[in-house]
């Protein structure tokens, strides 16, 4: 298995270690973000993803479709999916 497949498998395993795999959240890495707004522009339901990236907060809105559009469109790899159970409970 090449390293990429292995890394991908690791991400999956990491997620599986925690049982309650309800949904994924979009999580920003603010240091990469330059507030260009491409993420918010492509959100089909108008979530201001850019603001989350500024605040360093995951997109926890229950109506987020987790369609991955913002993650895919960000030109700087600011956004990624993470399993909900890895986030602090609120």
């Amino acid at each position: 298995m090449d390293w990429k497949a292995r890394l991908a498998r690791w991400f999956r395993q990491e997620a599986k270690r925690h049982e309650a795999m309800v949904a994924g959240y979009v999580v920003p890495d603010p240091i990469r973000c330059v507030q260009c707004g491409i993420c918010s522009y492509h959100c089909p339901i108008g979530i201001d993803v850019r603001r989350h990236a500024w605040e360093g907060q995951p997109v926890v809105e229950s109506y987020c479709l987790t369609c991955g559009e913002c993650v895919a469109r960000c030109p700087r790899g600011v956004l990624r999916f993470e399993r909900s159970d890895l986030l602090p409970a609120d």
Binding site: V34, Q35, C36, G37, S40, Y41, R50, R51, P75
Partner: peptide, 21 residues
């Protein structure tokens, strides 16, 4: 506005009004 975003405005990846956070 997002100064680095100007690059994406030049290539039409984002409209001008979107550059304002």
């Amino acid at each position: 506005y997002s100064r680095p975003g100007l690059a994406y405005y030049l290539t039409d990846e984002v409209p001008e009004k979107q550059l304002f956070p």
